[in-house]
């Protein structure tokens, strides 16, 4: 990373992360440090282990070894929903919205951990329940407005066009009130115009919500365009790290992407 001393606080610190599936080594000795407000890209060929890293950060997989610290808290061992509640939200490579529910409900589900009323409040419809529900609705609609999705709030998520589904997924992740946002191939399947919009959007939400963003991407234009730092992995190991410019000219990266002899 930067050799200059960093003054911003560390948000995420991954050290020696390793994951085996049976005999298959998916991730080996992966390190990463994210400072507050970073916008960092994680790239690599298909099957390099990027999503596996995400799944370990969010607790879906238990690492074979290594440590993941978020704001100084060791995440290994927490359940996925607890990690989300600590302030890490993510989107999925293949969009995983709750397709049969409305866009609004998708967001309200993400706000569940902040609902702040008990089951009995809900069943008896107490004053607290009504108050909190109104707040949840307000917050969800606010987010939808920010993402320009107000008009589709009552549509079923599966009926939306692809680009809007992506935006809903980001909105839903934001509803978790994260400090760290993990985006898994947000630009997959988008055309150049949409990618430009997405780049603006990512910048915008990072500044507006004071987020740290880590993203996996295949679209080089997006990664090179917005990331300040890029980490390249292949076969689960880091092969390069640096600014977009450094990465573009790194022979090992070119080899990993295009194969030997290219």
């Amino acid at each position: 990373m930067n050799t200059t001393a960093e003054t911003r606080p560390v948000v995420l610190q991954i050290e020696g992360l390793t994951k085996y599936f049976g005999g298959l080594r998916a991730v080996y000795n992966f390190d990463l440090t994210l400072y507050d407000g970073d916008l960092v890209g994680l790239i690599g060929p298909n099957g390099a282990g990027k999503t596996t890293i995400f799944n370990q950060i969010t607790g879906l997989y238990l690492p074979t070894s290594g440590s993941i610290k978020f704001n100084g808290i060791e995440l290994v061992g927490f359940e996925p929903h607890e990690i989300t509640r600590l302030g890490i939200a993510r989107t999925f490579q293949n969009i995983r919205l709750f397709g049969n529910l409305t866009v609004l409900d998708n967001l309200r589900i993400a706000l569940h951990s902040q609902a702040g009323y008990s089951l009995f409040d809900g069943i008896l419809m107490t004053r607290k329940y009504r108050q909190r529900e109104a707040e949840i609705l307000e917050r969800a609609q606010e987010l939808l407005e920010i993402m320009g999705l107000t008009k589709v709030q009552n549509e079923l998520a599966r009926n939306l066009p692809y680009g809007e589904q992506r935006r809903v997924e980001i909105a839903r992740a934001l509803a978790c009130s994260p400090r760290l946002l993990l985006l898994d191939e947000p630009a997959a399947g988008m055309n150049p115009k949409e990618i430009t919009q997405l780049m603006d959007l990512i910048h915008f939400i990072r500044d507006k919500f004071k987020l740290t963003v880590l993203l996996i991407e295949h679209q080089m234009r997006l990664v090179m365009g917005i990331c300040e730092q890029i980490t390249v992995i292949d076969f689960g190991e880091i092969i390069a790290r640096g600014t977009p410019k450094e990465i573009q000219n790194n022979p090992r990266v070119i080899e990993a992407y295009l194969g030997k002899g290219a």
Partner: peptide
């Protein structure tokens, strides 16, 4: 909005 619940105690991994 109530702030996100943050675990008070570190979990013990069995």
């Amino acid at each position: 909005m109530q702030s996100i619940s943050r675990p008070q105690k570190m979990p013990v991994i069995v």
